[in-house]
Simulated scan of single mutants.
Amino acid sequence: MIEFKVTSDYIPMIQLLKAANLVQTGGEAQIVVTEGEVKYNGQVDYRKRLKVQKGDVVEFRGETIRII
């Protein structure tokens, strides 16, 4: 599990995937989100601009990111 600390109120999903080094580019992040490869709090979520906040859990390709 990756624990990712946000310093503001939220981080957009695409930026989170890049910052956690799970994708190489923002374009790749957009593709995996729109193809339904990302789970947000246990549910597949297709929103590229989703605001991920403290306490949320994101799952992607076997990795779990908990936002702290």
Score class of each variant (00 low, 15 high):
Val58Gln: 07
Val23Ala: 03
Lys54Arg: 15
Ser8Gly: 10
Val6Ala: 14
Asp45Asn: 14
Asn21Met: 07
Gly55Tyr: 14
Glu63Arg: 08
Arg66Met: 11
Phe4Asp: 04
Phe4Tyr: 15
Gln30Asn: 10
Val58Ser: 11
Gly26Gln: 08
Val23Ile: 06
Ile65Cys: 08
Asp56Ser: 07
Gly36Cys: 08
Gln43Tyr: 07
Glu35Ser: 07
Leu16Pro: 03
Met1Cys: 12
Pro12Tyr: 13
Gln30Pro: 06
Lys48Thr: 12
Asp45Phe: 02
Thr25Ile: 03
Val44His: 02
Ile2Thr: 14
Glu63Asp: 10
Glu28Thr: 06
Arg66Gly: 00
Tyr10Leu: 09
Val58Lys: 02
Asp9Ala: 11
Gln30Asp: 05
Ile14Ala: 04
Ile65Glu: 01
Pro12Phe: 15
Glu37Ser: 06
Val38Ala: 01
Gly62Ile: 11
Leu17Gln: 03
Gln53Pro: 00
Ala29Phe: 07
Val58His: 04
Gln53Arg: 13
Asp45Lys: 05
Tyr10Ala: 11
Arg66Phe: 14
Leu16His: 02
Asp9Thr: 14
Ile11Gln: 05
Val32Arg: 02
Tyr40Asp: 00
Arg61Asp: 13
Gln24Lys: 14
Thr34Arg: 10
Lys51Trp: 01
Ile2Lys: 10
Lys39His: 04
Lys48Asn: 10
Thr34Glu: 14
Arg61Pro: 10
Thr7Phe: 10
Pro12Arg: 15
Val6Lys: 10
Arg66Ile: 07
Phe4Ala: 02
Arg66Glu: 09
Val52Thr: 01
Thr7Asn: 15
Lys18Met: 05
Asp45Gln: 09
Ala19Phe: 11
Pro12Ala: 15
Arg49Met: 04
Val38Tyr: 01
Ile11Pro: 03
Gln15Trp: 08
Gln43Phe: 11
Ile11Glu: 01
Lys48Phe: 03
Gly26Phe: 09
Thr7Arg: 12
Phe60Trp: 08
Glu35Leu: 02
Met13Glu: 06
Val6Tyr: 07
Val44Asp: 05
Ser8Trp: 15
Phe60Gln: 01
Lys54Ile: 14
Gln43Lys: 15
Ile68His: 12
Tyr46Asp: 00
Ile65Met: 05
Lys51Thr: 04
Thr34Gln: 13
Asp9Phe: 15
Leu22Gly: 04
Val32Ile: 07
Ile14Trp: 10
Tyr40Arg: 05
Val33Ile: 14
Gln15Gly: 08
Lys18Leu: 07
Tyr40Lys: 04
Arg66Cys: 02
Gly55Cys: 11
Lys51Asp: 11
Lys5Glu: 15
Lys18Thr: 07
Leu50Gly: 05
Gly55Trp: 12
Met1Phe: 08
Gly42His: 00
Met1Glu: 13
Lys18Ser: 06
Gly55Val: 12
Pro12Gly: 09
Asp56Trp: 01
Arg47Pro: 01
Ile2Arg: 11
Asp45Ala: 05
Ala20Thr: 07
Glu3Thr: 13
Gly55Lys: 13
Phe60Cys: 08
Gln24Gly: 08
Gln53Phe: 09
Arg47Trp: 00
Glu35Thr: 12
Glu59Thr: 08
Gly42Asp: 04
Arg49Ile: 04
Ile14Arg: 02
Asp56Ile: 00
Ala20Phe: 08
Ile65Leu: 09
Gln43Cys: 12
